[in-house]
Amino acid sequence: METILELRGLTKRFGNLTAVNDLSLTMRKRSIHALIGPNGSGKTTTVGMINGTLPYSVGNVMFDGEDITGMKNHTIARKGVGRTFQNIKLFATMTVLENIMVGGHTLNPRSTNIVQYLFRVNNSLREETVLKEKAEAVLEFIGLKEYANREVGSLAYGLRKITEFGRALMGEPKLILLDEPAAGLNPSERVALIDTFIKAYERGTDFFLIEHNMDVVMNISTVITVLNFGTKIAEGTPKEIQTNPEVISAYLGRRYLKEVAR
């Protein structure tokens, strides 16, 4: 059993608040690993540490057999870790296609410099065409082809979420960290999004998934890790987690009640 991602004793403190406390977990290759927990339990913080956005002094992160502890955010991205954000972070003045194309920077980040690009006209035109065609293929894959030339700022919320996923896919990552991808989507959008995830998963991308929507989590995850106040309280298959008393009292119970009330 090969490992794609391994966290060893990760700890993050903001002042005297311990957002993530001695978190260890192992994520198998070819799996969808979910990280769930109440609001403020440290899920986004964990993602930030994995992809190098948040500095930390305690713990290690291994990705695909390599210690990536302390590496820069863009270096980690180039190694094959993509990410989407809880509060969408797109490039608002660019078109959908251009946003996707920016995601392609991980592919060959050091291929040329600007001066070479300016002189080798044919080469650079070809490179640009290849990038564009690849981005169009991604748009086709996520079902946003007809929106290619729309400015992202003018898109509906659900479409922006999908665009952000497309931008991550464009970089051909081995692993995508998804921070609440289904939040704010209506049920039909949610179904479409899950279908897209499954398709991408079948093409070879693994997912580390943070999500509050239990329909999504329980249906697509292989393994679930549960956080409470920054500490891991449980880990197991969806079935095991659903019946774990501690998880129910700390998280699921409240959550399920809320869902019913809606």
Partner: peptide, 19 residues
């Protein structure tokens, strides 16, 4: 496009593999 990305949302720039 990378320059404009920096202006539009610099938080998302490194995640795209851009220094």
């Amino acid at each position: 496009r990378a320059f404009i990305a920096v202006r539009d949302n610099s938080d998302a720039v490194p995640s795209c593999g851009i220094n």
